[in-house]
Every structure is written in C-alpha cells, then in structure tokens.
C-alpha cells in the first residue's frame, strides 16, 4: 500500500496559481525526487505536505488515513495538527538549526518535549524521568553517529561546517521517526565540496529504504538514488515515472528542454 497519496492538490498565492492538480503516490521504502526549475512549485509542494502552507484544494493520505481534505473546513486543534505534521520530517535548504543548542540538543529537543508530555513521565519518580531522558540522549547520539558526527555532538551550529550542519539537521528530522522524510534542496546552500558528504548520507538512507521525497537540482544524484521522479513546471506535474527512465529518456518536450541544460 502506498504510504503517501496526494490527490489533486491546488495552491494559489493571491491570483498566482503555484500548484495545479498535483497527484502522486509513494510506496513505503522508496525515494522520490522532484525536479524542475526554480519557481516551478517544488518547495511549495513539500511545504503543503506538512502544513507549513495550507493547500487550497485536494486531499492527502498517509498510510490510508486522510490527513488533509481541502473540502473539510472544520478547524483542527493544535494538538491534532501537530500529530499530523509528525508523519513528515523536513530538512531545510538552509538547515535552520537552533543556534543556541548543541548538535545533540538540536536532535533531542523535540523528542525530549514529547517525552515530558507523556502521562507516564509526569507520574514517574525522579529516577524514572532521568532514565527516560537518558534514552532520548542515547537515541540522539545514535543518530549523530549514523551521520558520522558523534565527536561533534557538543559543538554549536556556528562551530560546524555547512555540510556538518545539514547532517545534524537530517539527524534532527529523523529523531521523531517520521513516516516520510522530506528534503528541500538539501545541498543548494553548500559549496560542491560539502555537497558530497550530504548526498552520501542521503544515499545511505535510501539504501536503508527510508521513505523520502527529495527536491533537488542534482540530476545525477536523482537518477541514481531515487526510485521515481516527478518533473514540475509552472505548478504542474509535466512528467513522472521511474527515475532512470524520466531523466535519461524524457518523453515530454518541456522535460527534454529542462534536462538538456544539465548535459551541456
């Protein structure tokens, strides 16, 4: 069954339509790359999935459960909205790490807050709470180790390189075990030297069958790592299909035109 199903998503800012009739689905354990020129709506699409933007039309299903329906005007409670958001983890283009927290604290902050909201935590004694928080710390360390950053755990973001910061951000997005990990041009703010280390991490996540959607300008990477590709232009999906097929043999004229810029 598809872990994510997006049906006829629409979004406009004033009179400008930025997303038109966007529909696609994603299988558990697969990676989807979204490509297209700047302003084609890729980032807005990601932002609609976790409600940083509210779509004006369409429906979104995760694991068969409807998490968004534009036709339903009843207002969600903050609690419900938060719960639905957590289906997704998001890695930002400019990292957005919290500067006042160390790498490890960045990763553990949200999990710690959720832990403290649990009924069992509030009822538990001091030792129990300590042990629970220790578990959160350990989980954070495991994630940083996975990113090859264990020895940087106590560094503040400004003491880390861009590539390291982005890997911390990936660990942070993984901390709450989202169903789907979203990447919004994860390497666009990095110089080529640092791009490699971030792509390597994403590639290893794909190898471990992490379900993810990657908005990217790295065509070779999209071709090699993603299972499927969506090409967007002017707020429309122009072409979608298996990654290799779409990128090597695009059918639509507009896709060919776009991809030709990468072969020069």
């Amino acid at each position: 069954m598809a872990v994510l199903e997006v049906k006829n998503i629409e979004k406009h800012f004033g009179d400008t339509k930025v997303l038109n009739d966007i529909s696609f689905s994603l299988e558990r354990g697969s990676a989807l790359a979204i490509i297209g020129s700047s302003g084609s709506g890729k980032t807005t699409l990601l932002r609609c999935l976790n409600f940083l933007e509210k779509p004006d039309g369409g429906e979104i299903f995760v694991n068969g459960e409807k998490i968004f329906d534009a036709g339903d005007t009843s207002k969600l409670s903050e609690k419900e909205l938060r719960a639905r958001r957590l289906h997704f983890g998001l890695v930002f283009q400019n990292f957005n790490l919290f500067p006042q927290y160390t790498a490890l604290q960045n990763v553990t902050l949200a999990e710690e807050l959720f832990k403290k909201e649990e009924e069992g935590y509030a009822a538990g004694n001091k030792e129990y709470r300590k042990a629970e928080l220790k578990k959160v710390q350990q989980h954070g360390m495991e994630l940083l180790e996975k990113m090859g950053l264990a020895e940087r755990a106590n560094h503040y973001p400004h003491q880390l390189s861009g590539g390291q910061q982005q890997r911390v951000a990936i660990a942070r997005a993984l901390a709450l075990n989202p169903d789907i990990l979203l990447f919004d041009e994860p390497t666009s703010a990095l110089d080529p030297e640092l791009t490699g280390e971030v792509l390597k991490v994403i590639r290893s996540l794909a190898d471990q069958h992490t379900t993810m959607i990657i908005v990217t300008h790295e065509m070779a990477f999209a071709r090699d790592v993603a299972d499927s590709v969506i090409f967007m232009d002017g707020g429309y999906i122009i072409e979608q299909g298996p990654a290799k097929e779409v990128i090597e043999n695009p059918k639509m004229e507009r896709t060919k035109q776009f991809l030709s810029h990468y072969n020069e």
């Binding site: 719960a83 983890g89 957005n96």
Partner: peptide
C-alpha cells in the same frame, strides 16, 4: 529571528508556546 527557526520548530511538532520559550526567546534576548 529568521522565520525558518519557527518553521523548524513547527515541523518538529512543537507548540507555539514551546517555540517561543525554547527557540525564539533566547535568540531575541541576545
């Protein structure tokens, strides 16, 4: 305080109060 800080808090499931208290406040104070 950059808008991205608030958004990073939102996507981590934090409440508005948590975002102000845990993220925005200290950056603002600085």
């Amino acid at each position: 305080v950059p808008i991205g800080q608030r958004e990073a808090g939102l996507v981590l499931g934090m409440t508005k109060k948590q975002i102000f208290g845990r993220i925005t406040l200290l950056q603002m104070i600085k």
